[in-house]
Amino acid sequence: MKDVSFGQYYPVSSYVHRLDPRLKLLFLIAYIVAIFLASNFYGLAACAGVLVVIVIAARIPFGKVLRAVRGVVFLVIFTAALNILFYNGETVYASWWVFDITKEGLIFSAFLALRLVLLVVCSSLLTYTTTPVSLTDGVESLLTPLKWIKIPVHALALVMSIALRFIPILMDETERIKNAQKARGADFESGNLLKRIKAMVPVLVPLLLSAFRRADELGDAMDARCYTGSGKRTKYKKLRFTWRDLIAFLVGAALIAGVVLMKIYLPAPY
């Protein structure tokens, strides 16, 4: 579980933790829209500012937030590098063969990198501050309209929460199997990409088998606790929309309005 902080609930009590998960989900969607609508650094700065406020309000340590970013560092650097090399700009700083490093390219790639980081941080904040159970409750509630066309929303939501719960367990298990295969002489580090992918087969097969075995046992345990999947099931934690949620809703709406206004009234070129 060393590197997977993405998707891990961080158990503290805070304003953000207590918000309605439906609101948080909708806010995330709106936030992502805002990030993509923002066409200059003012807009992104506003988004980043809001994020900092959320992190503080959620009492999440900044180190934890950085750890979520660590997972996508490679992707960010990779896209940034491509943009720096291939962006067609006017002010050329350096040039080599078909590649030009331009001022506009640097700015544009910084802009994209910031966008990506904000996206990841905001999504992981959702999972840091929302337990999988309330997250799936939120998804289930938001997808209620699908129930009218006979889609088993409840079962899907349960599947989702169980999947989230088993991620760290299966990660641990992968590591264990990998070590076990290494002890038997398996080599995961050398060779070309194809060879390395092939080397993963002796890890994936036992992992898959064990996942099926776990699923079987979990099914039995659920049956033993009277699970039927019928509609008679009740909920211990009911979702309620409170004044807290209203304030957060207003903040979110103001953010998006602000970004849209900036897009219209402020000069576009970053």
């Binding site: 609930y9 337990t131 929460s161 719960r165 776990r214 046992e217 979990l218």
Partner: peptide, 8 residues
């Protein structure tokens, strides 16, 4: 690990 349904 195989009989807990929820995280909390």
């Amino acid at each position: 690990d195989n009989q807990t349904v929820a995280t909390i």
